[in-house]
Simulated assay, not measured.
Amino acid sequence: DEVLALCGLSELRDAYAAALPVGRRRLVELARALADHPSLLLLDEPTSGLDADQAARMEEIIRALDTTVLLVEHDMGFVMNVCDRLVVLDLGKVIASGAPAEIGDDPVVRAAYLGCP
């Protein structure tokens, strides 16, 4: 009940996940992972296919967690909002690590991900 409430799914307790829209299915996936109270949660592209409101909800949920989250995500706005610390890879190599403000200003990261100096 606690996880369903956190994910905004309480009213869908008896619904079939396959019948839900993509955004709600993503929340069901997250709820299933959280049900075991993990000490580490691995999320791969959690905002893929979500609209802005759904991504904002995902951000709220992740920020409310009392667990470590390892996030692989290409939505840089989401990453900058939800992460306390970043490690940036380019072609499998670490090119930067630090707080979001530091990473956002890093010229190597900007060149690799934004195509600008």
Results as ranks from 00 to 15, higher is better:
Asp1Val: 00
Leu4Ile: 13
Leu6Ser: 13
Gly8Leu: 13
Leu9Gly: 14
Ser10Cys: 09
Leu12Cys: 09
Tyr16Asp: 09
Ala18Trp: 10
Leu20Arg: 00
Gly23Ser: 03
Arg26Ser: 06
Arg26Gly: 04
Arg26Met: 08
Leu27Ile: 13
Leu27Phe: 11
Ala31Asp: 10
Arg32Gln: 09
Arg32Tyr: 00
His37Lys: 08
Pro38Asn: 03
Ser39Ala: 05
Leu40Lys: 00
Leu41Asn: 09
Leu42Met: 12
Leu42Thr: 05
Leu42Cys: 10
Leu43Val: 04
Glu45Ile: 02
Ser48His: 05
Ser48Met: 05
Asp53Ile: 15
Gln54Asn: 09
Gln54Gly: 11
Ala55Leu: 12
Ala56His: 14
Ala56Asn: 10
Arg57Asn: 04
Glu59Ile: 10
Glu59Ala: 11
Glu59Met: 08
Glu60Ser: 11
Ala64Asn: 05
Thr67Gly: 02
Thr68Gly: 08
Val69Trp: 12
Leu70Ser: 06
Leu71Asn: 05
Val72Glu: 10
Val72Thr: 06
Asp75Leu: 01
Phe78Met: 06
Met80Lys: 02
Met80Leu: 12
Asn81Ser: 10
Val82Ile: 01
Cys83Gly: 01
Leu86Cys: 10
Val87Arg: 02
Val88Glu: 02
Asp90Leu: 02
Leu91Pro: 00
Gly92Tyr: 06
Lys93Val: 12
Ala96Glu: 02
Ala96Ser: 11
Ala96Cys: 08
Pro100Thr: 11
Ala101Gly: 00
Glu102Asp: 15
Pro107Arg: 12
Val108Asp: 00
Val109Ala: 07
Arg110Gln: 13
Arg110Tyr: 09
Ala111Trp: 01
Leu114Pro: 14
Gly115His: 05
Cys116Thr: 14
Cys116Asp: 07
